[in-house]
């Protein structure tokens, strides 16, 4: 559906996207994951024809977006990072404008809007001015705008930003539903956000793709569920005593201890030196020193750590 070759984009001296290639298949939900400033929005702006690439090519369903923009743009529904809303219009006026602008045939307009309003649940704000809507509702109106004309390809830049947890779950379900009949590309800087909905994840960092895989494989590599990954412990006892007890484990790779959240508790973060599992050793050492373990579990990897992890392992390979 989307094919990008040697795609680059710079703004003056800043290189926002550097020479990336990807191929997004029809019917897939693909997630672009990356930290702030990684180049996600820039990539999406190039796919939708808002920005022209500095180098490289993009084609939508075989149609080059630079050479025949009008044909390619018909296939795309785009929700940019900031929803493109005319604040002085009411929701209905705005959506009427978008349907006409996107050249939906007259006889289909009413039914189409009806369906879309039901999908994104904005039926109760139809007559309100957009500038008076809450952020979450503005986001939904933006999503509605992208769905107008029922385009086969949906590009959604951080679609759940600014929504409350209940709405996030609703929108995720909506995206999964849409994914049954549309090709969807969405972006986020939160891993669980993307792994919940996507068939495939492209991880972008500093304008480059550092990984491209299914969520299952990525979480296998990243989630840290195995014993070899870093573990975080909550222990009843003094931090110095914990340090002394754990130091002597031969397979211990890294160790740091500190005061816990309450008096009399301490925390420790440990990692094995090699691939081995040291959880049992830790249990025995602490039991011998009479320091009860209250909690032990894999540490949540922050996004920065995932990138660090990915970039270093890719380089080693």
């Amino acid at each position: 559906m989307i094919r990008a070759e040697n795609l680059s984009r710079h703004f003056g001296r800043i290189e926002a996207v550097r020479d990336i290639d990807f191929h997004i298949r029809k019917g897939e939900i693909t997630g672009l994951l990356g930290p702030n400033g990684a180049g996600k929005s820039t990539t999406m702006n190039m796919i939708t024809g808002y920005l022209a690439p500095s180098a490289g090519k993009i084609s939508i369903d075989g149609i080059d977006i630079v050479e025949s923009p009008e044909d390619a743009k018909k296939l795309i529904g785009y929700l940019p990072e900031q929803p493109p809303l005319y604040l002085d219009l009411t929701v209905d006026e705005y959506l009427d404008f978008v349907t006409e602008f996107k050249r939906v045939p007259k006889n289909r307009r009413k039914a189409d809007l009806e369906t879309i309003r039901d999908l994104v649940k904005i039926g109760d704000v139809r007559k309100r001015l957009i500038k008076n809507l809450s952020k979450g509702y503005k986001q939904r109106v933006g999503l509605a705008q992208a769905l107008v004309g029922n385009p086969p390809l949906l590009i959604l830049d951080e679609p759940t930003i600014g929504l409350d947890p209940k709405q996030i779950i609703e929108i995720r379900e909506l995206i999964r539903d849409l994914g049954k009949e549309h090709t969807v590309v969405l972006s986020s800087h939160i891993l669980p956000e993307i792994s919940a909905t996507c068939h495939r994840i492209l991880i972008i960092d500093k304008g480059k793709i550092v990984a491209s895989d299914s969520p299952e494989n990525l979480s296998g590599r990243l989630s840290g569920a195995s014993g070899a990954a870093r573990q975080k412990l909550l222990i009843k006892g003094d931090a110095d005593a914990v340090q002394a007890a754990l130091e002597n484990i031969p397979a211990m790779g890294s160790l740091s201890t500190g005061k816990g959240p309450e008096d009399g508790l301490s925390e420790a973060v440990i990692a094995a030196a090699g691939e081995g599992d040291i959880r049992e050793d830790v249990f025995r050492a602490l039991a011998a020193a009479d320091l009860p373990i209250l909690q032990m579990g894999p540490m949540d990897l922050s996004l920065e750590e995932i990138f660090l992890n990915l970039t270093t392992t890719e380089e080693e390979a």
Binding site: N45, G49, E70, K74, P80, L85, V98
Partner: peptide, 14 residues
């Protein structure tokens, strides 16, 4: 200012 040009310039109009 309101980034609505993103709607206009990514639509089917020339």
């Amino acid at each position: 200012r309101f980034k609505t040009d993103q709607l206009l310039l990514t639509g089917p109009s020339n």
